[in-house]
């Protein structure tokens, strides 16, 4: 039996903070939809990097105070944001030139599934009648140098999201570099999945039991 009493999974804000802490100084960082949006609230003290939103903003600031939302100043998830002093606006073709042209250093994306070789599936579950929606995800994985995935470790039903092979249609092949979940931080490289850090109380055996792909330390 795997001991589970003392496990304290990281919450979404803690996961977002872990991502922010791993971003190199001076990076240009695209934030995707969902949990990645939270990362904009966390720039570690004394450091500077620039958050990019695919819809034409370089320099996302923290969320606005209630009552100060501007429907024409939003992020990729269509939520109200602020722009930092020194921010820039630009049109969509320029925004994706930054992405596809390899000018963005790091991208933070959500995931349905990540495979052991870094394949990412995050746009379609392939279910008949489902509405596929790709957004900018395929452009991001093809153009950004470092891809961070931030996601719950398992689905709502408790099924592993870190799998041997993605069963859902791919967003990109061998594109993910690091996975941040509520249970662990995991590096993806050519030799496999390497656990960097585990949430308080999480043992390697417990983590492996929640992960379909083989993990290494």
């Amino acid at each position: 039996m795997v001991e589970i009493q003392n496990i304290k999974p990281w919450n979404r804000n803690e996961m977002a903070q872990k991502v922010a802490a791993d971003i190199p100084d001076g990076s240009y960082v695209n934030l995707g939809i969902g949990i990645p949006e939270l990362v904009a609230s966390f720039v570690p003290e004394g450091r500077e990097f620039m958050y990019h939103s695919e819809n034409g903003l370089l320099g996302i600031g923290p969320p606005p105070q209630p009552g100060h939302e501007d429907p024409e100043l939003i992020n990729a998830g269509k939520k109200a944001v602020t722009a930092i002093p020194g921010a820039a606006y630009f049109h969509h073709a320029d925004s994706f030139a930054m992405i596809r042209g390899k000018h963005i250093d790091v991208c933070v994306l959500g995931a349905f599934q990540v495979s052991q070789n870094g394949d990412l599936a995050n746009w379609s579950t392939g279910v008949p009648g489902g509405i596929p929606a790709v957004g900018g995800a395929m452009d991001l994985v093809s153009g950004v140098k470092t891809i961070f995935v931030i996601t719950q470790h398992t689905t709502k039903e408790g099924k592993p999201k870190i799998v041997k092979e993605c069963s859902y249609p791919l967003t990109g092949k061998a594109v993910v570099d690091r996975i941040f979940t509520d249970l662990a931080v995991i590096d993806v490289n050519k030799r496999g999945l390497f656990v960097r850090e585990m949430a308080p109380g999480v043992s390697f055996d417990y983590l492996q039991s929640k992960t379909e792909a083989k993990l290494e330390i």
Binding site: E54, H91, H92, A93, S95, F96, I99, R100, S124, P132, A133, V134, G135, G136, A137, M138, D139, S142, G143, P169, L170, T171, G172, K173
Partner: peptide, 30 residues
Amino acid sequence: LVPQGTLAERIRAGGAGIPAFYTPTSVDTP
């Protein structure tokens, strides 16, 4: 369904007199 950057660039190309272009986006996907 068109990836967002491909959509933007297809429209830009349409306005710029470029009939088609090669892009890395969506390689290895459906």
